Simulated assay, not measured.
Amino acid sequence: MAPKPDIETAAADLRRQLARRLEKDGLLRSPEWRAAVEAVPRHLFIPRFHRESESIGVTAWEPVSPETVGREQWLRLVYTDETWMTQFDGRDTDWSDPKPISNATPTSSSTLPSLVVRMLEDLDVREGMTVLEIGTGTGYSTALMCHRLGSEAVTSIETDEGVARRAREALSRSGYTPDLVVADGRAGHADGAPYDRLIATCGLRNIPPAWLEQVRHGGVILTTLRGWMRSLGLVKLTVTGDSASGWFSADEPSFMIARQQDAPESLGMIPGPEEGTTRGARYGPEVLTSSGPAFLAQLAAPDVRFFSMRDDSGTTSTFVLDSVSRSFAVLTPWTNGWQVRQGGPRRLWDAIESAVAIWEEYGSPNRAAFGVTAGRKAQVVWLGNPDGPQWPLPR
């Protein structure tokens, strides 16, 4: 029987297989990024992680390491095109006695390689450029950029000290020495400015003004915009003077929201049964979860979250609560449709219905029909062109 290959030989073969799959799917388009995928040892960046288990009725994650599943399965999983969770609720796992995790929120991960390389390809870098990365995470994407551009061209910011420390160690073991900073990524890193490119691997509610100041004229910002209900999507902006503008991509990659912009714990006060005014609703709560309409709902009501609750009579209502303005909308089944009860400074459901109606009037286009103009004082998402319908991003 032939001896099993050592871990480095097996990992190198799995990297080549991964690169071939990504290239076949049209995500890996340039030989420079293919060389980076084939060279960077992802297994050094995620020596242990969690995967979602198949438990029924509850979301849970089971620990994965060479010790828990065996070296061969662990290595195979590392080089699959999957996102693996590496931290929950801002706390590190005790890997001396790992256990399944449930009732927890992921706060750090290693993003699926297909999304990583797709974003790096879209970043459109060339030799001699400098890049600022927001969200080091495990350091895997940082390493890919170091391989492509040289460590001296890459600055990466991570908000979590423990996550940053592990990334630094993995980068060092892999032979890369970028400038790593532990800080709030929204402030950028002025010491290395101006940058040619900025890429963010966390979701933001708006474009931080510091980014506009630190990316050179003609430079590119590639980031995901998102809200408290859902992701808006990936947007690529070109900086011109003191503002930046560009378009969303057609699909909807989603990243964890930046910790400094996470939603308040409280959703807001549940209104009493007599509060507000009631009318028939043009749309029901399905617009909050259907991909296209929900994009518009997030734009129209950026500070909103929602949930459904059944009352003593068995009727299920959907509560839409704005934790900033304290406005509310309550949707309840009514004859052959829905009725809505609204109160507070904003008529939330009026705003959502208006936005969805405009979207339908324009032919229900996908996200690629929307763009962003971001200045230091005002930022808007527009439909069709900068003079079309607009929705402000939260400041």
Rank of each mutant, 00 (worst) to 15 (best):
F370W: 07
S172H: 13
S308P: 02
V125D: 00
E32R: 14
S110M: 08
A190R: 15
R118K: 14
L123C: 08
D160L: 13
M1N: 03
K24R: 14
T373A: 14
G363V: 04
V125P: 01
A170L: 08
I358A: 05
E72Q: 13
A187M: 10
L112R: 12
D242R: 08
R326M: 11
T111N: 08
D312H: 04
E158H: 08
E38Q: 14
E275R: 11
I358N: 00
L132A: 11
V320A: 01
S254P: 02
R205D: 01
T80Y: 00
P273Y: 07
G292T: 10
T240V: 15
W334E: 13
S290G: 02
G227H: 03
L28G: 05
D97S: 15
D312R: 15
G384N: 08
T240P: 00
T105E: 12
D124C: 09
A19G: 08
R168G: 13
D89Y: 09
Q87P: 01
P253N: 07
E121G: 05
A357G: 10
Y140Q: 03
R310K: 13
G185M: 03
H217K: 10
P31L: 10
P106E: 14
G241E: 06
E213D: 15
D94V: 06
P106L: 12
A351F: 01
A164L: 14
V239G: 01
P365Q: 09
A369I: 07
T238V: 15
T316G: 01
D124F: 04
G314M: 02
E265I: 07
N366K: 12
V239L: 09
T223I: 14
I134D: 10
D242E: 15
A2H: 10
G175T: 04
L22A: 02
W359A: 07
V117Q: 00
I134P: 05
E62K: 06
E353L: 03
P41F: 10
A164E: 02
S108P: 05
K4H: 07
P209V: 10
G175Q: 07
P5Q: 05
S102W: 10
I56L: 13
V131K: 00
I46Q: 06
V69N: 09
I358G: 00
T9E: 12
I56S: 15
R230Y: 00
